[in-house]
Amino acid sequence: MNKRKRHVADVALKLFVEKGIQQTSIQEIIELANISKGTFYNYFSSKNDCIAEILEGLRYDASQLRMEMQMGRDPNDRQIFIEQISILMKLNEERNLHAVFEAIMSSNEPEHKKLVLHHRFHEMEWLSHRFVDLYGEDIREYALECAVLFFGMMQYVMFTVRISHMPHSVERIVNVLLSYIELIYPSMIDGDKSLINQSSLHFLRSNIDRRDMTLKSILETAAYLEKQDGFTEEQQDLFSAIVSELKQERIRKCVIQPLLKPLQLAFSQTPLEMQVANFTNMVWYFLKGI
């Protein structure tokens, strides 16, 4: 983002925080930024586009700072990890973005919500990968759940800190919460217990981007699965029944929905478990919309 475009985005963010997104008009952004209407629309096609640029700018700033922190240093260094997590929290606090996020998620604006979900999804994905860097391959299957737990704890700790006006250090909060994750994840591995698996990452991505929920994309996923070897008779019968029904001119939800859970269970603890879970999640979500 060039400097002038960044300036306009910063002005828009200031107004969004002060007045709220819905209460801020494009004309107010234009006047405060001291630009023409043509200049605004040269930069942004809409207010949604402006919000998208603000979030993209935040991710870009955090990404650049994270790379600078890691350059020439050990990626497994816990202190670097703490600094990398802290930088986005600091940027959020400095720009008062938490207030904007809360307003968006409690609004009736699906496009705005999707932008925030994209932002949060990217952060969860980044944190999941960094957990694997730091703690090794053993945590990979549980990395997404650890990321969800970490961000959930962080959100409510920061909320409590803000409303109580407690003095705080972001690095200390991240350090302590990270130590909690370090106590939790060994028991997840040893007991083979998790609430969220990696297939949920695919479903989150699909949930955020509705284009992945078309019947065409579901059937393409099914075609890929059909090419895999080793289906048992039970697995093949369940899978074929669902796919056959999806190809009908009139798709009967009452036929498909009772088969989804048995299909997942039939592939439990097999090499295709995650792919089949992703497929059934996509089908379930698609059926909700018809």
Results as ranks from 00 to 15, higher is better:
residue 1 M to F: 15
residue 2 N to Y: 14
residue 2 N to M: 09
residue 5 K to A: 11
residue 10 D to K: 10
residue 16 F to Y: 15
residue 18 E to T: 10
residue 23 Q to T: 11
residue 25 S to R: 13
residue 27 Q to A: 04
residue 28 E to R: 11
residue 28 E to L: 11
residue 30 I to P: 10
residue 33 A to Y: 03
residue 44 F to D: 07
residue 46 S to G: 01
residue 50 C to Q: 12
residue 53 E to M: 08
residue 55 L to D: 04
residue 58 L to A: 01
residue 58 L to N: 00
residue 62 A to L: 00
residue 64 Q to V: 15
residue 66 R to T: 15
residue 68 E to G: 11
residue 72 G to S: 06
residue 75 P to V: 08
residue 78 R to T: 10
residue 80 I to L: 09
residue 82 I to Q: 04
residue 83 E to I: 02
residue 85 I to H: 06
residue 85 I to C: 07
residue 89 M to D: 03
residue 89 M to P: 00
residue 91 L to N: 11
residue 92 N to E: 15
residue 97 L to M: 15
residue 100 V to E: 02
residue 104 I to Y: 11
residue 110 P to Q: 09
residue 111 E to D: 02
residue 117 L to E: 06
residue 119 H to Y: 10
residue 119 H to I: 00
residue 122 H to N: 15
residue 123 E to F: 00
residue 125 E to G: 06
residue 125 E to V: 11
residue 132 V to P: 10
residue 134 L to D: 00
residue 135 Y to C: 02
residue 137 E to P: 07
residue 153 M to N: 06
residue 158 M to E: 08
residue 173 I to K: 09
residue 176 V to Q: 10
residue 191 G to K: 07
residue 194 S to R: 08
residue 194 S to W: 05
residue 201 L to M: 14
residue 211 R to T: 12
residue 216 K to I: 09
residue 221 T to V: 13
residue 227 K to T: 13
residue 228 Q to L: 13
residue 233 E to C: 00
residue 239 F to L: 06
residue 242 I to E: 05
residue 243 V to Y: 09
residue 243 V to G: 12
residue 246 L to Q: 04
residue 250 R to A: 14
residue 251 I to P: 05
residue 254 C to D: 11
residue 254 C to H: 10
residue 257 Q to T: 04
residue 262 P to A: 00
residue 263 L to S: 13
residue 268 S to T: 13
residue 268 S to H: 14
residue 268 S to M: 13
residue 273 E to V: 02
residue 273 E to I: 01
residue 273 E to P: 02
residue 277 A to F: 11
residue 279 F to I: 10
residue 280 T to V: 12
residue 286 F to P: 00
residue 290 I to A: 01
residue 290 I to F: 02
